[in-house]
Amino acid sequence: MVLIAPPSRADVDEHWQAVARGEIARETVSAWAEPLMFAEYGTEPDLLVMQALQYLHGLDMTYRSDDGRLVGHGPPGAYVRNQDDIWSELHEWRRRCRDYDADPAGWVAAQRRDAMAEIQRERKGT
């Protein structure tokens, strides 16, 4: 088995911007991201890159039902995210990268706390 190098944040940012600018199709970026989410890497991949790959893989999601409850990859249907959403979420991902880089352990701990709090809210039905 050949182990590959994980993509970099710059790779992710470049692909994300290209979709946001309309230079490449969402489906192309989704197809690029999908195998990278499941690849065997020779080095530990960047946590924020792996999160971004999941997001990029979903950029081609379209509504498959009028009530918006059914979605799928690619057309037909209206895209779940518009171009403004794509730009906004790119900026949010960049902010998360800065926050993580400033305090990786603290960032991970905060994510765990937030996830546990959400689980507790769901259990209580609130």
Rank of each mutant, 00 (worst) to 15 (best):
G58M: 12
E14I: 03
D103S: 08
E14C: 03
D11T: 03
E34P: 01
V12I: 14
S8K: 00
A18Y: 09
E44I: 10
L56Q: 14
E44C: 11
T28P: 09
K124M: 15
T62C: 15
L47I: 14
R96N: 02
E89P: 02
Y100K: 01
Q120W: 11
P7N: 01
L70H: 13
G22N: 13
D84Y: 12
D103L: 06
Q83S: 13
L59E: 03
T126K: 15
L53K: 03
A102V: 15
V108S: 07
I24K: 13
D99L: 13
R113I: 02
L59T: 08
G125Y: 12
Y63A: 08
R96W: 03
R96K: 07
R95N: 00
D67W: 02
G42I: 00
V71S: 15
Y41W: 04
D13V: 11
P7A: 01
A10G: 08
R121P: 04
D101M: 06
L48V: 04
G68W: 00
D13C: 10
A102G: 12
R64Q: 07
W87I: 13
E23R: 10
R123S: 05
S8M: 01
L36T: 00
I86F: 06
Y79K: 04
I4S: 02
R113M: 01
P6F: 04
N82E: 07
A105I: 01
C97N: 09
R113F: 00
